[in-house]
Write a protein that binds this DNA or RNA. Structure first.
Length: 669
DNA sequence: ACCCCCTGCGCG
DNA sequence: AAAGCGCGCAGGGGGT
């Protein structure tokens, strides 16, 4: 397997997969042009692995593989045992560039120092880049051609490939070359280049995390469900019902019990199968009698026996039915949200609140979820890099980023392994402090508890300091928040000014960018029409317009903070990924992985290496051998320091991590 | 039978 | 004066 060797150092090689594990490769010149003629590889994974291995053993910089869409290219390589250190993901990059370029005319100065943007007055960042982020962009002129082939659209993962891989390679090389120029033409090419590199590396991390899976103990999960809900309904019945798949499975025992109590509290009979009167009455009446009704004085008509005025049973899963039933008892509510129900005095409320909590667990993370998403002791979901406009990741399948805290009990390390759980403490307010260059605010963010440090400005009340800060970042001003916000504005004018400038930009229809240059979406056509920004001068004083305008202001206000926090977290994640791969190489394949003493081929990657297994906005989990826990914990902290330096440069603001080494996720924190 | 929107709630 | 931000997923309910 020979491959033409170019310069040692930062080399870009375009890659297009072909049929049956084959592929086409072409080394690229510094300006992105193809160098020489393409090489066809029968076993693409082997060629990539060989080249990765070469770089590792020689200490040279690894190749940056340029491919159209890592989400489709990389998983097959992973399955074949090939991991790569770095890449340029044309699809992810195109999404970043499109967001920037389609809004270029609307930006109107946000991000330029002369436009009133608060700017940090500490020294300019020193952004010595690590190897995955080497700013090897050519300093070429700008060509801002938009409109790439659909092949590279991030949403087109399954798009039909061009018939000829050679054509695909040409398109790839052209698109990449164009992207290099557009990146170089950014207002802040180094920062934007860092974002591109980090986003691309995030694509690698995402695919690797899907492959690894989150350790998940189905038996622990099942026991928890059984304890709270009763036995698994499907395993109860199962006796001969023809067409058994037709009927929905019966509610678990505890949910059925609560549903009966709720219906009974509304004076309805039980819908149960055993006949409307007999069994239903007994079932409905009995638990209610035993239910402590302390504090409920409303019960007179609600307690009317089921036989008396046989109301229809109320389905607690139906907000509409609940509202009707409550109205029939003289209680009119705007919604059936838990917060609304909590203040209501009615005998159905207590069982209803319990029902809602358990029913959510059952429907979202019950036995069906377990059977669907957990296999071989792993929960595997797909991560969507940049799936949120702010740059946060989204997930597809299993609600991976919404796992109830309760179920963290089921996330347990393998025997001999541990979970290193690390989350960034108070990330968003610290990001605001670093962004805004507010000396007083940044001084507070230099300590371990930002809100406690701010409390002095709020009469020593930490809770008030927290509420004020959150209101500034989210745009809330209800209740007490308005006053607290005024205090914050007075004591920390630059911090408040930063988010308020972002809010103003949004209200006026402009776009804003994160610290690394991720751009928020422009307003929709309907928004512009509504707010009179569409060129219609006689702006009608539509109250809708004001609301829409302020809603967008809250969005952009939050975007600058949330997206910059996502920048930091993403850089932290990919730095951690790189550092972990070094640990696994240093510590030893020979000592840990390979009792035979043979150097393992990159195609048979270490089973013992630390693995990133979870990433949730500001939190990561690494699954590693117990004896590596200390090294991994230190590595996470180093990665956080990398992120702070690369994203914000020198800053007094600290970004502390809570790091826990545990066997069970629930024991972290 | 299928699709779409709404409500509600889990996470950050 | 009033308004907090971003997602994914399940179930209900109406429409086709």
């Amino acid at each position: 397997m020979s491959y033409p060797h170019g310069t040692i150092g930062s080399v870009r090689v375009a890659v297009v997969p072909g049929p049956d594990g084959s592929g086409l490769l072409c080394e690229l010149d510094d300006d992105g042009s193809g160098r020489g003629s393409p090489l066809r590889a029968d076993d693409l994974g082997a060629v990539l692995a060989e080249r990765e291995d070469q770089a590792r053993s020689s200490g040279a910089e690894p190749v940056r593989w340029v491919w159209a869409n890592g989400a489709s290219v990389y998983p097959p390589l992973l399955r074949a045992g090939t991991r790569v250190a770095r890449c340029h993901d044309v699809a992810l990059t195109e999404a970043l560039l499109c967001a920037r370029d389609q809004s270029a005319d609307d930006r109107l100065g946000w991000g330029r120092p002369d436009a009133g943007e608060p700017a940090p007055d500490w020294p300019a960042p020193d952004r010595a880049a690590p190897d995955w982020a080497a700013p090897d962009w050519p300093g070429r002129g700008a060509s801002t051609s938009a409109g790439q082939p659909a092949l590279f659209e991030p949403t087109q993962a399954g798009a039909p490939a061009p018939p000829d891989p050679a054509d695909a390679l040409d398109m790839l090389i052209h698109a990449h070359k164009d992207q290099l120029a557009r990146i170089a033409a950014d207002e802040h090419p180094a920062r934007f280049g860092l974002l591109v590199a980090a986003e691309s590396a995030g694509g690698l991390a995402a695919a690797e995390m899907t492959q690894a899976g989150l350790p998940w103990r189905a038996d622990v999960h099942d026991a928890l469900l059984t304890e709270l809900l009763g036995p698994h309904p499907a395993s109860q019945r199962r006796q001969g019902r023809r067409g058994a798949s037709q009927a929905p499975p019966p509610r678990p025992a505890r949910l059925a019990e609560l549903a009966a109590q709720i219906s009974a509290a509304f004076g309805a009979s039980e819908p149960g199968s055993g006949g409307r009167d007999g069994g239903g009455q007994a079932l409905a009446g009995q638990p209610l009698a035993g239910q402590p009704l302390a504090g409920h004085s409303h019960g007179s008509q609600a307690l009317a026996g089921p036989g008396a005025s046989a109301r229809r049973p109320v389905n607690p899963d139906s907000p509409a039915q609940l509202l009707r039933a409550l109205a029939a008892d003289g209680i009119r509510l705007p919604s059936t949200r838990t917060a609304v129900l909590a203040g209501v005095d009615h005998p159905a409320i207590a069982p209803l609140l319990e029902y809602k909590e358990l029913s959510r667990l059952y429907s979202a993370f019950g036995w069906t979820w377990l059977e669907t998403w957990v296999a071989d002791g792993r929960f595997r979901s797909e991560y969507i890099v940049g799936g949120v406009v702010s740059g946060r990741w989204a997930s597809r399948g299993g609600g991976a980023l919404q796992i109830p805290r309760l179920l963290r009990r089921a996330v347990v390390a393998d025997p001999g392994w541990v979970l290193v759980v690390a989350d960034a403490a108070q990330l968003e307010p610290r990001v605001l402090a670093a962004l805004a260059g507010d000396h007083a605010f940044a001084a507070a963010a230099a300590g371990g508890d930002l809100y406690a440090e701010l409390a002095g400005a709020f009469g020593g009340d930490r809770a008030k300091a927290k509420l004020a800060t959150l209101s500034a970042m989210y745009g809330g001003a209800g209740g007490e928040a308005g006053q607290l916000l005024a205090v914050l504005r007075q004591r920390f004018p630059a911090a408040a000014g930063y988010v308020e400038a972002a809010a103003r930009a949004g209200e006026e229809g402009r776009v804003v960018r994160s610290v690394l240059g991720r751009t928020c979406p422009p307003p929709s056509a309907s928004w512009r029409a509504l707010t009179g920004q569409a060129g219609d001068p006689e702006a009608e004083p539509d109250p809708q317009a004001g609301r829409a305008s302020r809603a967008r202001g809250r969005f952009t206000r939050n975007f600058v903070v949330q997206a910059s926090a996502a920048d930091w977290a993403l850089v932290m994640l990919v730095s951690l990924r790189t550092r972990l791969s070094r640990i696994s190489m240093a510590n030893g394949p020979s000592s840990l992985d390979d009792p035979s003493g043979l150097v393992p081929s990159p195609r048979a990657p270490s089973e013992m290496a630390p693995r990133l297994v979870f990433f949730q906005h500001d939190e990561v989990i690494v699954h590693c051998r117990a004896e590596q826990a200390d090294a991994v914990a230190a590595t996470v902290s180093s990665a956080a320091a990398d992120a702070t330096r690369l994203v914000f440069g020198p800053t007094p603001v600290t970004f502390p991590l809570n790091v826990a080494v545990v066997e069970c996720y629930a024991d972290a924190k």
